[in-house]
Simulated scan of single mutants.
Amino acid sequence: MPQEAKETFGPAAFRPAPAALAGRVRTLAPSLTRSLRRVAEAVANAPAGCAALTVTGLAERTGTSEATVVRTARVLGYPGYRDLRLALAGLAAQQQSGRAPALTTDIAVDDSLADVVAELAHDEQQTLAGTAACLDTAQLEAAVTAAAGARRVDVYGVGASGPVAQDLTQKLLRIGRVAHAHSDPHLAVTNAVQLGAGDVAVAITHSGSTGDVIEPLRVAFERGATTVAITGRPESPVAQYADHVLTTSTARESELRPAAMSSRTGQLLVVDCLFVGVAQRTYEAAGPALAASYEALAHRHR
């Protein structure tokens, strides 16, 4: 079961790309202590200014200690402060050259549609980069292994996560897997009761606190099914009933871009990774199943 914001060291660290740093900070912030969060938010919001600071300077700027600065760098995926500082310098250079837009753009009511397109495209890119940096491939590998060998896969998602749950289910069905998506909380629970060892239950909730998703996952967990949570909050309540947690990042929210919009992008990336992994593992059956579905659809539109 996942623990609070694990530190990473040496070659095994994430070492996220500079452009993914802000997304990683957003994802980890709720699980960080107040002092760690101050340092993390400072480097994400002002990469150029922080890149010019020594570890002592950044500690003074954030009202923390040198040890806290070093620990923050490790929590964010860098072996030490020097590596984080290099990433900040790279991000600052990209922004100054125009190759990486500033991370503080918001969509305003009076923005032109051209500006909206550019800002949304930038936010989507940041979300995808952040999710890729946050996603624990060992957890993903374990989830893929379970789903590839499952007798049945049940997926729970409500609200904005509902269509994502449907997307995963439809993909699995096209490669011959037995899968069901549940947005009705009562049906989700009554179906979860039927699960057991050899089955997989997947809960999709950005907040990790959606009761209508947590309850069926809890039932599936207690019945012995392998459980997977796709969430932007790895320390949230849903994680206590998840054997494997797949973490997503989100773009920065604004009045015209709520979390429901930004979270969906990261969720869909994780769903696609999970599906492709299962298709690879079961290709002998998945390949003909996909070919048959393409043929059936092509025949329907002739």
Rank of each mutant, 00 (worst) to 15 (best):
L195E: 03
C273T: 02
L173S: 06
G211F: 09
A150D: 03
L36A: 04
A67E: 13
T105A: 15
V25T: 00
P163D: 13
P30W: 15
A42M: 08
Y294T: 11
A197F: 13
V276H: 11
E60V: 05
A92H: 11
E4H: 06
R300G: 07
G149R: 14
A201P: 04
A5Q: 10
A203K: 00
A286L: 14
P216N: 03
P101V: 11
R223Y: 11
L274E: 10
G49I: 00
A108Y: 12
A239Q: 12
G63L: 09
A5L: 13
L58A: 00
R257Y: 13
R152W: 15
S35Y: 03
H244A: 10
A17V: 13
T64I: 07
L91M: 15
A59Q: 04
S249N: 06
A147L: 13
T54Q: 04
T265E: 08
R24Y: 07
G57P: 03
M261W: 13
A201S: 09
E4N: 05
A286Q: 09
L128R: 12
V116L: 15
L53Q: 07
L135Y: 06
A108D: 14
S207K: 03
P79A: 05
P101E: 14
V117F: 09
L173N: 06
G63D: 09
L140W: 11
A225P: 09
H122N: 14
L86A: 10
A260W: 15
S209E: 14
G57S: 09
E141I: 07
Q267N: 08
L135V: 14
A296P: 09
L135F: 13
G287A: 15
G224S: 13
S249L: 08
T250P: 02
A239N: 09
C273D: 03
Q95Y: 10
Q166L: 12
A93N: 10
V55R: 01
V155R: 04
R74G: 02
T131Q: 02
E66G: 01
A142G: 12
A73Y: 00
H299E: 14
Q194I: 11
V144C: 06
A100H: 14
A44E: 09
T226K: 07
Q170S: 12
V116M: 08
P18T: 00
A286M: 14
G176H: 02
D115W: 12
T72I: 00
L86T: 03
P234R: 00
D111L: 08
D83F: 00
H299S: 10
A12E: 15
L76V: 05
A40M: 01
L246V: 09
A93E: 15
A298C: 13
H182S: 11
V202K: 00
A203M: 09
L103H: 13
L246P: 03
A48R: 08
H122L: 14
A138C: 15
V213E: 01
A289D: 12
P185Q: 01
L128W: 10
T105S: 15
V271E: 04
L36E: 03
L53G: 03
V278S: 00
A146N: 06
E235Y: 10
R281N: 09
